[in-house]
Design a protein around this nucleic acid. Structure first.
Lengths: 154, 154
DNA sequence: AGAATTTCTTATCCTAGGTTAATGCGCAGG
DNA sequence: CCTGCGCATTAACCTAGGATAAGAAATTCT
């Protein structure tokens, strides 16, 4: 736990780095973001005074997000604490799932989201009607049908 | 904490109800979803065996999500526990913010997301360049410019 | 200050996905 | 067993927002 000055534009966490830190913004403005395979940035969140910012991924896994300063800032750096579990569903696990979902919704096409869904939840995909998959993906059932047809003819 | 059988299609939590419960799925499949002002459903998450499902909103606030059963299910119902705070940033607060963001991304147009952003983060909107607002909203800077122009001429 | 780089805006054109409507299918209920 | 309804699919058409390009304005660097 230490305090640090960060200049505008300075990157304090890169994708792939060890990801055991939480940054508390004492002053200034930070952002976390991902960069997709086409090189586009997608801002996940902003954090101003009195907010914390971190990658939602587990501490022992590599970071998926970049974090940098939008203004000259002062941050206090903490280690992520072991988190309370509840019936096997940890908060961090939940947060990480949502982080991935937000990034997905911002950066991927319907087809990519569909593929990702099938990979991540092969079991649920079998048990749920099409219209609910569409609803989860944020598209209409008609669009999902189009997508699946393209799939078959390829 | 009690166990309950739920039949397919049965709604176990409605929007507006008291929201102090977490549902652990012992067997079956549940979903949480919102209904927007146009009456469209947007599934927020699925929960199968050994998962928990709940509205991320604070226990003392009314629920924003509906929860119902996709299959006949057995759930154990818990009360939400007081959650650990960390430097003023509680996990639940984080989860709730992400829940809103996901729903937003699934159900709202770029204009609506922009308006919502301005309302929710008026401060940050002033301090951040346009392209970053666009990036946060999941649109291109060019599209944000279009939106802002329409705004001015109305 | 002046040059160089980035940001913002505008215009044109294009495409992914939405809307509407019609058809066929499977399943629940009488 | 039939009827009816919700679900999935297809097709035709439409629109919000993306891509590209170019000029203006702001910022940064030297």
């Amino acid at each position: 736990m230490k305090t640090k000055h960060i200049r505008k534009g300075e990157i304090i966490q890169q994708r792939g780095e060890i990801n055991s830190k939480v940054f508390h913004v004492d002053k200034g403005l930070l952002r976390s973001y991902s960069i997709d395979e086409k090189g586009r940035e997608h801002i996940f969140m902003f954090a101003a005074e009195a907010c914390c910012i971190a990658d939602g991924q587990k501490p022992e896994k590599p970071a998926e997000l970049f974090i940098d300063a939008i203004e000259d800032s002062i941050v206090t750096i903490y280690e992520k604490e072991p988190e309370p579990e509840f019936k096997g569903n940890a908060y961090i696990q939940m947060i990480y799932g949502l982080q991935r979902r937000v990034i997905m919704l911002m950066s991927s096409s319907a087809i990519e989201r569909y593929e990702s869904f099938l990979e991540t939840y092969p079991d649920i995909a079998q048990r749920v009607p099409q219209r609910m998959i569409a609803s989860y993906l944020g598209i209409t059932p008609e669009s999902l049908s189009k997508i699946k047809r393209k799939y078959r003819n390829s």
